[in-house]
């Protein structure tokens, strides 16, 4: 309780500090270079100065935070990836060479590519189909809310939920995990799903698909509604059936949004960590890059060199999407 009070006080303090900073600097700027009441060359000079300085005053706190927490670490991580485990000795490319020869790393890369292939594709596909279906029925909004709900659940909470679904009891005793119960009901033998190499990756992916489909659905549903009615009416008049309208008229018009959803989920997949940590911690060949990186950060007192080099690999995988995003955003602004 005491710490909650402390938190609330800090919060109020933090907000007050922001207010004081913004009001204070703004007031100071107006005092130093007054433009009201003055006329002529001095007034216009002061006005120009304040207009040049004020944006930077407005942005300074945010830019500082971004610089410390995101920009500097990117360069520092790259630098650390060329240093040894404690970050003192320069070791050249040996962290990267180690990586190429390490079985666990290769396993992680392989698994990450599996995730990249499966999760964005299925989430987007399900999201699109569900968006199209729910738009036609009167209780569609209720259905959407329920499918969107997992979005609010933490990855760890989702891991517990699904661990319960996958729960395994030895053959003969009653299964309390619903998946094994269904398998047994259809006459199969119960399996410890998490321990079947290769396929267990897919059981982990199901969790992320379960979470992300709602996201894809919400955005694609909005995009579908933005499609001009006339195009669909024209197709109906031409005698197209529902499936044709969906795939040949509606989907091509929202390619841009589909790409955005796809790339957003791709970024998320590259960073997936909590699910693997909570479900298997990389055992039974389910390791992924983010979890491996976390592992090396603390393994045996922490190997910062190897940890940083794995982080750099994740970053490199993100860069193409980053460039694509920046180009899109720039285009958007020029419009």
């Amino acid at each position: 309780m005491q710490q909650l009070l402390f938190a609330i006080f800090t919060m109020i303090g933090g907000v007050l500090a922001c207010v004081v900073y913004f009001f204070g600097t703004n007031w100071l700027l107006d005092k130093l270079f007054p433009s009201k009441g003055l006329v002529g060359a001095e007034a216009s000079r002061n006005l120009r100065l304040t207009n040049a300085i004020r944006p930077w005053l407005f942005m300074a706190p945010a830019l500082c935070a971004l610089a410390i927490y995101l920009v500097y670490p990117v360069f520092e991580s790259v630098r650390l990836s060329f240093l040894d485990r404690s970050g003192r000795q320069f070791v050249g490319f040996s962290n990267y060479v180690w990586m190429l020869g390490d079985g666990e790393f290769r396993q992680s890369i392989f698994n990450n590519f599996l995730w990249l292939l499966v999760v964005p594709a299925l989430s987007t596909f399900f999201g699109l189909v569900i968006a199209a279906l729910t738009d036609r029925i009167w209780w569609g909004n209720i259905a959407k809310t329920l499918i969107f709900m997992p979005m609010a659940i933490s990855f760890v909470g989702a891991a517990v939920i699904w661990k319960f679904v996958y729960d395994y009891r030895s053959e003969g005793s009653e299964q309390i995990g619903i998946l094994n119960a269904v398998v047994v009901a259809f006459g199969g033998a119960p399996e410890a799903w998490m321990t079947i190499p290769f396929w267990n990756n897919f059981f982990l992916m199901v969790i992320l698909i379960w979470i992300q489909t709602g996201f894809a659905m919400v955005i694609l549903s909005a995009a579908l509604r933005g499609i001009p009615e006339e195009t669909i009416e024209a197709a109906v008049i031409d005698g197209a059936n529902g499936v044709q309208i969906f795939f040949k008229i509606m989907v091509p018009q929202i390619w841009g949004t589909i790409a955005v959803v796809w790339t957003t989920i791709t970024i998320l997949v590259l960073k997936v960590f909590d699910i693997v940590l909570a479900m298997t911690n990389g055992q039974w060949q389910t390791q992924v890059l983010a979890n491996l990186m976390f592992d090396w950060m603390f393994r045996g007192g922490g190997d910062f060199g190897r940890g940083a080099s794995i982080a750099v690999v994740i970053m490199i995988l993100v860069v193409p999407i980053m460039i694509w995003n920046i180009r899109n955003a720039t285009k958007e602004m020029e419009r």
Binding site: Y69, L70, P73, V74, E76, S77, L80, I267, L270, K271, L289, A290, M293, F294, M297, F304, G307, A308, I310, A311, V312, I314, M315, V318, I321, M322, N325
Partner: peptide
Amino acid sequence: VVPLQMSLI
């Protein structure tokens, strides 16, 4: 889109 992993260490 910068991964958090870059910032941790």
